[in-house]
Design a protein around this nucleic acid. Structure first.
Lengths: 102, 102
DNA sequence: ATAGTAGGTTACATAAAGTAAGTTATATGA
DNA sequence: TCATATAACTTACTTTATGTAACCTACTAT
């Protein structure tokens, strides 16, 4: 890779983020409110391995926050940060498009 | 895969489409107007192999139309169909988000 | 002691993406 | 005439990402 194109690096990065398998659907699930690992896993046809990987990536991007409640058994919730929540507009547009064209 | 989730199949398919590498950026380039293969290839850090593959997929989805002009050398242009163009709302939202948060 | 639950991780196989060279058809320049 | 160039791909090969299934840890209930 690494050609020099006039491409905006911020757009490019945004497209890399949502252009990654499961990310859109994970954000979609979380727009509904904080959810537990197993809740997301059963809402989507994704494996635990990848869900774990994606949630870590989204945490690193500060789009998702991981909240641990030390109950028994432990409860872990994932919630959108403001940055994550602000993807709502884009997600909604994709949903709208899907209802109109698919 | 193939679990039974209550997930909307149209949303799921839409997310599969844009959640595939390069698709968002290819659509972004074409929102600007029809473009030739080499134009897209030099606008984005994508290889010819993958660009060719993606354009075929987008053609099959009827989001992009391939127009061949039998000049010398041959000219091939790719343009958005109505279905492809109607992704504009979503792409614009992603762009807006990128400018605000990245 | 056995099994169940939540939230993962590990090991391994398959599929997708990246890289570079080759192809076809025509044209142009030396 | 032979080499070089261009557009639009394609092929062969390597590397990375994804999918699948088994396993782990800590605790509880039976």
């Amino acid at each position: 890779m690494e050609q020099q194109t006039g491409l905006c690096p911020r757009l490019s990065k945004a497209m890399d983020l949502i252009g990654k398998r499961w990310v859109g659907l994970i954000l979609y699930e979380l727009l509904d409110g904080p959810k537990r690992f197993n809740q997301i896993e059963s809402a989507l046809p994704i494996s635990g391995r990848l869900l774990s990987e994606r949630l870590k990536e989204l945490e690193k991007e500060e789009m998702v926050e991981r909240c641990v409640y030390t109950e028994v058994p432990v409860r872990v919730e994932y919630k959108l940060t403001d940055k994550g929540y602000s993807m709502k507009g884009a997600i909604n547009e994709i949903e709208k498009w899907s209802k109109e064209w698919l």
